[in-house]
Amino acid sequence: MTEPSRADSWTSECWGRLRFAVALEGFTLITLVLVGSTLKHFADIPIAVQIMGPVHGLAFLFFLYVLVEAISARMIGGWAGLRLLIGAMIPFGGFVNERWLARKAKAIR
């Protein structure tokens, strides 16, 4: 059995980071939409939106950064990047894309 090379560990680290960014963005979007907006509009409690709004904004920026890095590194192509970007704007889209990336990473390895 051979030890994993530095390039292998780097590749899996990059895929892991991209999957984490996609899942984090999806999670904060769901929290903002389902919990924050529901509390604000039905119970008149805006605090969840006030907290989750900036948190989701930062998660989205982190996702964009990792996406640019992944496309520049040719880990994923332009169409895959577009799919991730569209998925990031749809509730639960991030979770679907995270699973898709996991399968893609497994197929490459």
Partner: peptide, 11 residues
């Protein structure tokens, strides 16, 4: 992010 990705792309 782009520069970091490019550096990683090329061996």
């Amino acid at each position: 992010g782009m520069l970091s990705g490019r550096l990683r792309r090329f061996d």
